[in-house]
Nucleic acid binder design. Sequence first.
DNA 1: CAAGAATTTGAGAGCGCTCCCATATTCTTG
DNA 2: CAAGAATATGGGAGCGCTCTCAAATTCTTG
Lengths: 339, 339
Amino acid sequence: MKRLTLEEIGQIAGVSRSTVSRVINDHPNIRPAVRQRVEDVIRQTGYQPNSAARSLASSQSRVFGLVMPSILQSAFADPYYPLVIQAISHACNQHDYTPGLFLFQTPEEEEKVSQRIVASGLIDGLIITADTINSTFVSKIQQYDIPFVQIGRPPASNAAAISYVDVDNEAGAYLAASHLVQLGYRRIGQLATAHNTAGADRDAGFRHALADRGLEVDEALVKVSDFSEAGGYQAMQTLLSRQPEAVFAQSDAIALGAVRAIRDRGLNVPQDIAVVGFDDMPLAANADPPLTTVRQPINRTGMLAVETLIDIVRTTPEPARHIVLPVELVIRASSGAVN
Amino acid sequence: MKRLTLEEIGQIAGVSRSTVSRVINDHPNIRPAVRQRVEDVIRQTGYQPNSAARSLASSQSRVFGLVMPSILQSAFADPYYPLVIQAISHACNQHDYTPGLFLFQTPEEEEKVSQRIVASGLIDGLIITADTINSTFVSKIQQYDIPFVQIGRPPASNAAAISYVDVDNEAGAYLAASHLVQLGYRRIGQLATAHNTAGADRDAGFRHALADRGLEVDEALVKVSDFSEAGGYQAMQTLLSRQPEAVFAQSDAIALGAVRAIRDRGLNVPQDIAVVGFDDMPLAANADPPLTTVRQPINRTGMLAVETLIDIVRTTPEPARHIVLPVELVIRASSGAVN
DNA sequence: CAAGAATTTGAGAGCGCTCCCATATTCTTG
DNA sequence: CAAGAATATGGGAGCGCTCTCAAATTCTTG
């Protein structure tokens, strides 16, 4: 079927191009009868405005870029990212935006593609998932005047100038660690991560919780992992010799790896070692044992990132928006509080 | 920094708009000296052509839509999809296309968004990941003249007319099942899936393998699951009472769930029950025990889907392209062949 | 019911490119 | 080295919208 133009829709409805444009863009000052007539024609013909022409005339594409910088490497080892992508996609669908996907595996790929996307006008704004401490991508993007919001808190040095949506990682870790303390565990370990602000905040929450209850953090019980199940497995293996009574893992994937490591050593969760995770991924509830964890609202994070970006694009970019979402502790069997 | 136009680049380089356009689009018949001069100016200024203007003038957007129909539901329960997305993203980056992401959770969302994407000219073609038997989405898309390729074989009824990239599921399952037979197992079960062609093909391969070696398929040893780890866990639980000696799972996630179910029953893999998966996800190698599985080339699948679509968009859409990629059996500990 | 105010509609210009055709330049070759 | 062929370059038109401004229509109100 041939594609119609505004002009042709106008002809059919007996009005001008301009009037049809007004109807489509919800402008005021159209007689109701005319609006109705035009809307009918649009519906009957299935007309959709040509998006290239729209972008060119309005310099707005209604496309957002969803960026995962190369520094995240094989980002999908952590099931968190697919969920974020899903949430953002859904939010974009609701708001009639199209999410363009930009995953970078190497710095070269990042360099080549990012040049194109920032300068071609293809994209109205960027959603950047990067809470790594050193993000060359973000500092590069700041040089262009393209709006963006970050998912996850940027490093303190430039957090003020950057709009972001984050969850309250510190409060979540505080809840998790407090929970373990309250259950009577004393030798509490942590499977931490490095080079990312979420990890730093969770670490801080963990330490505050212990301190607030008069416990000292035994640095020998803190091991660094990446965000994957395999990383958790390895880190837990090294931690096992220190005989912790409980362990706070900075993600569910890490926690699951830890559980596996504990089992392989012939020990049981939570009888021998209690485990608490972070994220509340779908698989946390189905795990064996079901994982006590900190639930973070991934869907709301994605939705708010999109809505914040829309707001920035449509109104003034200043001042930067900072959103921090609350989290909650979900108590299941792995911490030994229930069975 | 202000965005430059073709005209302005031409001015700086002392040539016309048209010549600059020719340089950018690699047209022949430009004197080397002139081309050089123009390229220098482009490089120095960091000029990028405005993509809206390009699309409008050429009616090509260089955007592909990556679609996961609503029928897949929470598609990301299976880690296969994130990997496919990653592969497609990478392939698009290489070929200077932008992948637009269209994940649909409900039929309403699908309806609303797909109308916009097929008719607005935003998109040059679609990559559809859907090997479900009943895809209303695909039949709807066929009514428009928008090029698309499917990942996974369409149902036989209209496979001839549809371009697709698939892996040789039947051969893979045949390899896996033959492997189990050769190891001496006789009571071989299958954790199958329903309503998708990949599952049907893997089922066929499984049955052929057994038949070719004179074994009958015991239907009581075939259980249906979805593609998730939790689904595999449940299906295996019901299968356990039938005391299989070995089981072929139609995906790695299912296989991992099965391993967990077997363990929970106090049995060991592979000593009591051997397990073979399908996909060779990254976690298969790290699993405990490492999973014998059928490796499918996800990166090549994504790459070929993109390249096939580019070919269809640029040349003639007829005839439909059918690509079936080979798979290989990866033998690890879970099948009992090695330790 | 006329005159001014308010509302509604139409037409022109322009967004930055590509594509085609006309003109200018360079290359052949007798 | 002239004349025709081949090659290289420039300019106009047009892609389908939006936005501004002017004109037409409708609404007020004395």
